[in-house]
Design a protein around this nucleic acid. Structure first.
Length: 610
RNA sequence: CGGAGUGUAGCGCAGCCCGGUAGCGCGUCUGUUUUGGGAGCAGAAUGUCGGGGGUUCGAAUCCCUCCACUCCGACCA
């Protein structure tokens, strides 16, 4: 029978290894002797890339033996991966504690009642995984914890004197994503640090928000990430401010607009497109109808008429807001041909249905008498909203509202009315920055953090109140602050890898140092030096991986330590020992270097920033 | 949700069209030689060919069905 726990008998399958341990390490604890040896630690590296991994972080996490897939969007974390995950958590925890937040732990499974109270049981779609317990009572797997924390705090905090207060947890969340992908980057189960603050004034909320902003900057800096806080859309919740923290990487799923002359950065959903400042050019041409048989898309029409997309407009038909009589009118949105509609901006306009919905083609045909591809603003009988840059055009091309025909030389006012002009497009590279300085550039980002001011959405719905100075009840004001811990691990890889594998920052590396022996089995001198350094470096507080497998070959060990991203590597062989040197190579270094054996410890101490 | 595709050894794949008792590379295990950048040789283990049903003397292969996974789309004027 197997016993578990610290006294569990250990079977040594590797006799040579056992002999070495006995010979060199008898006075160290079992833990120290065993755990950080490649002969005892699960090094689950793969030479070939599993076929279903698309992005680099996913491929490398599988190949480095960090994670394994269980099911779609569900992953096992192997020892190597978990060491990284725990280090990320540790940094997050330390910085959150430093900020004055208090750690709590809330359940993964949450009662439906709370979600009904906040109204989200109905609102939340199929992303919320719902289930019933044995008494047939409804529950869900928590995708987030606003309801639970609000419930907890309304019962615990009664007085303004206890506020402000900020509570956080590092906990597993579940969101039943439509399409999990990119490994732990977009998985269904993931670990998140979420924090919720409670206040009696918006000033106090703003204070904590600012503290969290600074805390997040500290966290991502310590994690060794290149990141940017960016202004974000506050979503349906509203509220004054919202910042997302993005790690910049080509594989990111969000577009971020940056000013090239200031630190302005905003999610493209949010980035404002400023109206052109110059006056609109004067009309020079008369409006003409031209046949454009079979030409529907902007590209086709431009090619056919030999004009640039900037000189055309496209007309999108969307559903308007539902009117009192329950009907939903059509609304036309007019954009310059080379621009894209920004749905977030459009659905915020009055008279537009939210969420934004494209009109079904059948309705367009029936009500406008024309198919998509030939629609234009001239003579349209439905409300028209024109983007600033489309409104700024003169002598442009558009659909003629007649199948197979377009109009050229069209001008606003003279030929078509533009009663409503608004910002409804995505910004593009080169647009003036909304901050007033410089022009915009667009880069891809991975959202790893989000802070925002919730206000009273949950506290009001769930009656979370305290007594104020005057003894009157006041609804608490809330903020919430999230970091995708598992996603941070993946995004660190997206930003730091080369053709040989991962490159960890010292702060989150699974091991700081790999000791790679050459011919340890045959050379007592090499074995002795490795064991000595292994013990000394551990003593100094480093996490050291000793590559002590019997049959391991040098090439394999070096390839593995590179793949796993261990930032510092020392190679010990007879040749070097005779010369009194030890080979060192930083994972990012182009060349290895020989260090005097006597200086190795101090060299590594100055070199490694834990 | 719509469309496409894939399920064969731990991983990467072939075999399927044209039915006849399942193979390659890597990995794993044993032995041996080797050892300064993913070793050589000799041997070995490992598969309900995604599940179920059908056709057939015989099914990885043909048919039906279910399941899982992956990709693409949800901007078209």
């Amino acid at each position: 029978m197997t016993r578990y726990g610290p006294n569990r008998p250990r079977r040594y399958t590797n006799i040579a290894n056992r002999r070495r341990i006995c010979a060199f390490k008898t006075h160290y604890s079992y833990q120290e002797v065993i755990t950080m040896r490649s002969s005892r630690f699960l090094i689950a590296t793969l030479k070939e890339t599993p076929s279903d991994a698309e992005v680099i972080s996913h491929q490398l996490m599988l190949r480095a033996g960090m994670i394994r897939k269980m099911a779609s969007g569900l992953y096992n974390w192997l020892p190597m991966g978990l060491r990284v995950l725990r280090k990320v958590e540790k940094i997050v925890r330390e910085e959150m504690n430093k900020s004055g937040a208090m750690e709590v732990l809330m359940p993964v499974v949450q009662p439906a009642e709370l979600w009904e109270e906040s109204g989200r049981w109905q609102q939340y779609g199929p992303e919320l995984l719902r289930m019933n317990d044995r008494h047939d009572r409804p529950f869900c797997l928590g995708p987030t914890h606003e309801e639970v924390i609000t419930d907890l705090i309304r019962n615990e905090i009664r007085s303004y004197k206890q506020l402000p207060a900020n509570f956080y947890q590092i906990q597993t969340k579940f969101r039943d994503e439509i399409r999990p992908r990119f490994g732990v980057m977009r998985s269904r189960e993931f670990i998140m640090k979420d924090a919720y603050s409670f206040h009696t004034s918006t000033e106090s909320l703003q204070e904590t928000y600012d503290v969290m902003h600074a805390t997040y900057c500290n966290i991502f800096t310590r994690l060794g990430l290149q990141f940017r806080p960016v202004l974000a859309d506050t979503g349906s919740i509203g509220g004054a401010f919202s910042h997302e923290f993005h790690v910049l990487a080509d594989s990111g799923e969000d577009d971020i607009a940056f000013s090239n002359a200031s630190d302005y950065a905003a999610n493209i959903e949010k980035a404002e497109a400023l109206p052109p400042t110059a006056p609109r050019p004067a009309a020079q041409h008369v409006m003409q109808e031209v046949a454009t048989p079979g030409k529907h898309s902007i590209d086709e029409v431009c090619e056919f008429l030999q004009v640039s997309p900037q000189q055309t407009v496209k007309t999108l038909i969307v559903l308007g807001a539902i009117r009192d009589d329950k009907t939903q009118p059509l609304v036309a949105l007019v954009l310059r041909g080379d621009h894209e509609l920004n749905e977030i901006k459009a659905e915020k306009l009055t008279g537009i249905a939210s969420p934004l919905t494209m009109a079904p083609e059948a309705r367009i045909k029936a009500e406008l008498g024309v198919g998509v591809g030939s629609i234009g603003p001239v003579g349209l009988k439905i409300p028209v909203i024109v983007d600033h840059s489309a409104a700024h055009l003169a002598d442009f091309v558009c659909g003629a509202n007649k199948d197979g025909f377009h109009l050229t030389g069209v001008n606003w006012e003279r030929d078509a009315t533009a009663p409503l002009v608004a910002d409804i497009r995505n910004v593009v590279t080169g647009d003036p920055s909304p901050c007033g300085n410089g022009t915009l550039e667009i880069k891809r980002g991975i959202e790893v953090g989000h802070i925002f001011q919730l206000g009273t959405k949950y506290s009001e719905a769930m009656k979370a109140k305290v007594l104020d100075v005057n003894g009157k009840e006041q609804t608490m004001i809330m903020g919430c602050y999230g970091i995708g811990v598992t996603r941070v691990v993946a995004s660190a890889i997206e930003q730091n890898f080369d053709e040989n594998g991962i490159i960890w920052a010292d702060s989150i590396a699974p091991f700081h140092i790999a000791i790679v022996p050459i011919n340890m089995q045959k050379s007592p001198a090499v074995a002795a030096k490795c064991e000595e350094l292994y013990a000394q470096l551990q003593e100094l507080g480093f996490d050291v991986l000793l590559m002590d497998e019997d049959k391991a070959r040098l090439g394999t060990m070096l390839a593995d330590t590179d793949l796993m991203g261990i930032p510092h590597r020392i190679v010990i062989g007879d040749r070097g020992l005779e010369a009194g040197t030890i080979e060192y190579k930083g994972r990012r270094d182009a060349e290895k270097q020989e260090i005097a054996a006597a200086d190795v410890l101090s060299f590594l101490q100055t070199r490694i920033k834990i």
